[in-house]
């Protein structure tokens, strides 16, 4: 603590509270809550409110008993439903990320190459949906994909099909929903890198006889790779825990882990199981989150050096 104070004084002679207030806030409302989740994932289920038993208890002889209970984890391990939910979440999030990349990369590239005045408008059009309600954008797809929805109505009226296609309540609709909702998160970091590229490099490559594809693979792609990584992680990490999209578009057969945690918590009221499920999901996500953080720091250092 003292060294923080001294450093602060040296650099800006600023009061300690400038750092202490946001730091304290995040410790209290972000870090400590995780420790509580971890703690409750080890406690016994019990009926009542709150629906979990304390970990530590004082016995009548004044002894402190700490009960670490692994039953929630073994329970999750023995029920294949949970395993499938994790696998489904990772697969769906991965497919969604790939989809975002396939649509987002050419779009970001196109925006970066447009004239400056057009660029502003094109970027604004990408950001605009992000500002409107996420929930209502998912809702829009129900109207499009459902058996009585616009696509099926159109195809039936055209005489192309006689019975509605099942476009909703499946993995396909969930992946589509993820691509739709997270596309801006992919385009923006990609654009930030593609825009910085000096396109004279490309002309030089052409002059030296490179084909367009070759020039792209050897120049544009490597230079935009940090954007690809950042965008992919920005899509993948939240998508793994997504609840709204699988709930509204995935139907009962799509069991993503966010939905399972929600049901354990709100429907079954098994808080310790929900906590254990959340801990396991976090373990899966620690590596991607760490990569994202490292990338973020590099970004800032790069900016600092400029």
């Amino acid at each position: 603590m003292k060294s923080i104070l001294r450093k602060l004084k040296l650099n800006f002679s600023s009061p300690f509270w400038v750092t202490a207030i946001p730091f304290g806030w995040l410790l209290l409302f972000f870090l400590i809550p995780f420790l509580i989740v971890l703690k409750i994932s080890f406690s016994d289920l019990r009926f009542g409110l709150p629906p979990y038993a304390p970990l530590m208890e004082w016995t009548s002889e004044g002894l402190l008993i700490i009960k670490i209970n692994l039953t929630n984890y073994t329970f999750i391990g023995t029920d294949s439903l949970y395993l499938f939910a994790y696998l489904d979440s990772l697969t769906i999030a991965l497919l969604g990320t790939i989809g975002c990349l396939c649509i987002g990369y050419p779009m970001a590239y196109g925006i970066a190459k447009a004239s400056p005045s057009k660029r502003t408008i094109l970027l604004m059009l990408v950001i605009l949906p992000f500002w409107t309600s996420f929930l209502l954008r998912v809702y829009a797809w129900i109207g499009i994909l459902s058996p009585q929805g616009y696509i099926n109505t159109l195809l039936i009226n055209l005489g192309l099909i006689s019975t509605p296609l099942s476009l909703i309540d499946n993995t396909f609709a969930t992946v589509l929903g993820i691509i739709y909702c997270y596309l801006p998160f992919m385009i923006l970091p990609l654009y930030a890198f593609l825009e910085k590229i000096d396109y004279a490099l490309l002309e030089a490559a052409y002059d030296l006889g490179a084909r367009p594809f070759q020039a792209f693979i050897r120049i544009i792609w490597p230079l935009s790779r940090p954007g690809v990584i950042a965008g992919s992680l920005l899509v993948f990490i939240p998508a793994v825990g997504e609840f709204v999209i699988p709930e509204l578009l995935g139907g009962s057969q799509t069991l993503m882990i966010g939905k399972v945690i929600w049901n354990e918590f709100f429907t079954n009221r098994t808080w310790p199981v929900a906590a254990a499920l959340a801990v396991i999901m976090l373990v899966f996500l620690i590596l991607p989150i760490a990569i994202f953080q490292r990338y973020q720091e590099q970004q800032v250092r790069f900016l600092d050096a400029e």
């Binding site: 209290l28 972000f30 809550p33 989740v37 990490i237 793994v240 609840f243 808080w271 906590a275």
Partner: peptide
């Protein structure tokens, strides 16, 4: 993921 943030804050 929001589910984790929500759950952990409620438990807090």
């Amino acid at each position: 993921p929001e589910v984790i943030t929500g759950l952990s804050l409620l438990l807090l």
